[in-house]
């Protein structure tokens, strides 16, 4: 590296140019090595997913050969699974519960955040801290009391049992509040002076200005709700209502050594979210970066 750099330096002449050339060359080599190493790791990271797709395209009998080459490529496993029909029920359940959870969280959370951000009322800080506690509460620890509660409400084995406890996400309130706090107040104050009520101002002015944060919270809530296992597993025992993770967990063992079928079910289970991810990649990534949150 140094030899190369000196070579260019001699040709160039003045001292500053030598240093610049050395630095540039050195940086280029260093960056090249970095990217090379990273590409290697990225490929390793893709292997499990590619292997699953590869296996799913083999006939069941040929999956034990453990080679990447597919002798007789086939979509039989996918055909079998889609014809069986369970997976359609799971898709429907996952879509209904995740969409309802995302919509509910955005609506209810942003309304509360608007009140906390823009309105002055007594006990505001009490409410603030009361909701802040919610960020720290691990919902997974509440399965026992929540299960009894939904049993008493006769809501077990309904979508409500999956949707309702996921809606009051304290973290969403804080993400919205942070965004509203940084939004210029001129516009909604102008609307207030013009006689619009608080709700109208929120609905007509503040919410449309908050598209990026609404999208981020909606996508995240959707993904978490979609991937949630423990709680839906407890409350959904009716196969018709099962979400994708619950359904897959339930049939997991039943494929036995039909590895192609198993991998096809994994690919089908992953497909909707992967498509959503490919579509919203930038937004999702910026959403995490901007809010620094985690479920």
């Amino acid at each position: 590296m140094t030899t190369l750099a000196t070579g260019t330096g001699v040709r160039k002449g003045t001292r500053t140019e030598v240093t610049q050339a050395v630095v540039d060359r050195r940086l280029k080599v260093f960056n090249g090595v970095c990217v090379g190493v990273l590409i290697a790791f990225a490929l390793i990271w893709l292997v499990p997913v590619l292997w699953a797709i590869d296996t799913s395209l083999k006939p069941n009998a040929e999956t034990t050969s453990t080679t990447w080459w597919i002798d007789h490529p086939t979509l039989d496993s996918y055909r079998t699974l889609l014809a069986q029909g369970d997976i359609w029920n799971w898709y429907a359940s996952s879509f209904i519960t995740s969409l309802a959870t995302a919509a509910g969280t955005v609506l209810v959370g942003s309304m509360a955040a608007y009140a906390l951000s823009r309105m002055r009322f007594r006990y505001r800080w009490v409410v603030f801290w009361f909701i802040l506690i919610g960020i720290m509460i691990p919902q997974q620890a509440l399965i026992v009391p929540q299960f009894r509660e939904f049993g008493a409400l006769h809501l077990l084995n309904t979508y409500w049992a999956v949707i309702l406890p996921q809606i009051p996400a304290a973290i969403a309130v804080f993400i919205f509040k942070q965004f509203f706090d940084n939004l210029p107040r001129d516009l909604d104050e102008a609307a207030r002076v013009d006689g619009a009520g608080f709700f109208r101002t929120y609905w007509r002015i503040v919410l449309p200005l908050s598209r990026p944060v609404v999208a981020a919270v909606a996508i995240f809530t959707f993904v978490w709700s979609w991937n949630n296992l423990l709680w839906p597993l407890l409350v959904l025992s009716n196969p018709k209502l099962m979400t994708i993770p619950v359904g897959l967990a339930t049939v997991q063992g039943s494929y036995g050594i039909r590895y192609a079928d198993t991998m096809a079910s994994a690919v089908l289970g992953a497909l909707p979210l992967v498509l959503i991810f490919l579509f919203f990649q930038r937004r999702i990534v910026e959403g995490i970066a901007g809010t620094g949150l985690k479920g």
């Binding site: 990271w45 499990p48 993770p245 992953a270």
Partner: peptide, 12 residues
């Protein structure tokens, strides 16, 4: 490559 696995359900 790195983020794709994160959006897979645990069951997958």
């Amino acid at each position: 490559a790195f983020f794709l696995p994160y959006i897979l359900p645990s069951a997958v």
